[in-house]
Simulated scan of single mutants.
Amino acid sequence: MSEEFSTQVSDRICKHMNDDHAEAVALYAKAYGDLKDATAATMLSIDAEGMNLQAQANGEEVPLRIKFDHTLKNAEDAHHTLIDMLKQVRK
């Protein structure tokens, strides 16, 4: 894991996303994880290449790895990328 995405940075981003943007995390699972039946999801970790989610669909827990379209530089890049991904889903 790169310096920019230490365990502490990943944990902070995941906590924020899960606590404040749970709907967005579920939308990532549906749109980018190709799990149309997802009813909820939890962001487990994030790194420069992608994010790991645990989604709930059809009464089952489904692990997902969603890769980003570029290698993230830092936490600020992650912030903007996650927002951009959400905007694409909501179009």
Rank of each mutant, 00 (worst) to 15 (best):
I46E: 01
M51G: 10
R12S: 04
M1S: 06
S6I: 04
L72P: 00
K15G: 05
T7G: 00
N52L: 07
F5G: 01
F68Y: 06
F5K: 01
V25R: 00
P63M: 08
D34C: 08
A29Q: 14
V9C: 08
K87G: 13
E23A: 14
M1K: 05
T7P: 01
E23V: 14
H79I: 06
S45M: 04
A26G: 09
S10Y: 03
A22W: 06
F5Q: 00
D34N: 11
A78P: 03
K30T: 01
E3R: 04
A26F: 06
D84V: 07
K15L: 07
S6C: 10
D47T: 03
T81V: 09
I13T: 05
D19M: 09
H79D: 09
M51L: 15
H16S: 14
F5S: 00
D19C: 09
S45Y: 00
A55K: 04
E61T: 15
R65P: 03
A75K: 07
Q8K: 09
N52F: 02
A78W: 02
N58C: 09
I83T: 12
Q88R: 15
E4N: 13
E23T: 14
L72R: 00
M1P: 03
I46N: 01
A75H: 03
E61R: 15
R65I: 03
